[in-house]
């Protein structure tokens, strides 16, 4: 039924260099995003250097909501929604894509809050990996309109 290994259906993202302009520096998401670009043979250049495209990241937004109340009528479960707005620009700072966003939602049990801070950090780290995958996928199609909708 037409299943093919990734890479046959569509060629990889044809991008050789990227500069990331982020409102905040040295954040966990930036680290994961940089590694992901390097894994896809796209080198990430420093602030001053020239790059084919510039990825602008705004602040990561975490919305934490109580979604369950325990028998002690206190919060027993939280929902974490992490979103990362981003947009691509060319070297003359002209927008190449419209403002985009990656978003992921996870729930976190809090009926026993022992060690919940470390658990939340582990969960956020996993959510950031998911956000990075979403950013790469959306960028793949937005930066290469000819790939889009070949069908």
């Amino acid at each position: 039924c037409g299943w093919q290994v990734r890479g046959n259906l569509l060629p990889p993202l044809a991008l050789d260099s990227v500069r990331i302009a982020s409102s905040e520096q040295y954040t966990p998401l930036l680290q994961i995003l940089t590694d992901a670009f390097v894994e896809n043979d796209i080198d990430v250049v420093g602030a001053g250097e020239k790059a084919q495209y510039v990825l602008v990241l705004e602040d990561e937004d975490l919305r934490k909501r109580t979604v369950g109340v325990g028998t002690d009528s206190l919060a027993a479960a939280f929902e974490l929604q992490l979103s990362q707005p981003f947009q691509w620009f060319d070297t003359q700072a002209v927008a190449v894509t419209s403002p985009l966003s990656a978003i992921v939602t996870r729930s976190l049990d809090a009926s026993d809050t022992t060690g919940i801070e470390r658990e939340q950090e582990l969960l956020l780290d996993d959510m950031r990996r998911e956000l990075v995958q979403q950013i790469l996928r959306q960028s793949y199609f937005q930066l290469q309109p000819e790939q889009a909708a070949q069908e």
């Binding site: 039924c1 037409g2 093919q4 290994v5 046959n8 070949q150 069908e151």
Partner: peptide, 16 residues
């Protein structure tokens, strides 16, 4: 881990 892909369709939007 392995990644498999194929074309798909939902209404008029082409999907992978």
């Amino acid at each position: 881990g392995l990644y498999f892909e194929r074309w798909s369709q939902f209404g008029d939007t082409p999907l992978i």
